[in-house]
């Protein structure tokens, strides 16, 4: 495991120093205004060799790529691979979706597909206010327009995606 040091930078944000295996260090600054800056320190150097700046959105995208949300390296050990196989997806319920109007219990999502609904985000149209149901029970009914957050294995998620979007059946 890498050694990570955390430090407060008053007025700027937070700093994380990651000690890598090769002796190099990676400095990650999260600025209070949202940007991230990455610095590369060669072994035994106190001045960074190079740096890159990311906006908040870019940083999140890059972060999920590095975290293996889209593609996992195949050479990992079994335990780590099992965690890395976990996929979390945001899916919007389409008007003609097979799941529309049915409850989580009816569909037997966990039993039949192996996916778990973590949360459902509903948009209340009139005020454009978002309302979230976290960990909804088996009696929860899917309605078109909702955004469903599900967790499960990648293949299971793909099958569930077909049922939610009404495609790929």
């Amino acid at each position: 495991m890498a050694l990570i040091k955390e430090a407060e930078l008053p007025g700027l944000g937070k700093k994380y120093m990651v000690e890598l295996e090769g002796g190099e260090r990676l400095g990650i600054i999260i600025y209070d205004e949202g940007n991230r800056e990455l610095f590369y320190f060669a072994p035994a150097e106190d001045e960074p060799t190079c740096s890159v700046t990311l906006t908040d959105q870019e940083a999140r995208q890059v972060g999920s790529i590095i975290g293996g949300a889209f593609y996992q390296p195949k050479l990992l050990e079994k335990l780590e691979a099992a965690i890395a196989d976990l996929c979390i997806e945001w899916l919007k319920v389409a008007p003609q979706a097979p799941v529309a109007g049915r409850t989580i219990g009816e569909l037997g999502l966990r039993k039949n597909l192996g996916v778990t609904v973590i949360a459902v985000i509903e948009e209340v149209d009139s005020k454009k206010k978002k309302c979230t149901a976290i960990n909804p029970g088996p009696g929860f009914t899917f309605v078109p327009g909702q955004t469903v957050v599900v967790a499960g294995r990648r293949d299971a998620i793909a099958r569930f995606e077909g049922m939610v979007t009404g495609e790929g059946r």
């Binding site: 430090a7 407060e8 930078l9 008053p10 007025g11 700027l12 700093k15 120093m17 400095g27 990650i28 600054i29 800056e37 610095f39 320190f41 106190d46 001045e47 960074p48 740096s51």
Partner: peptide, 14 residues
């Protein structure tokens, strides 16, 4: 100057 990640920056801000 891109020195925010330098070790001495903590001291400067302190």
């Amino acid at each position: 100057l891109k020195r925010t990640a330098n070790p001495e920056t903590e001291l400067i801000l302190g």
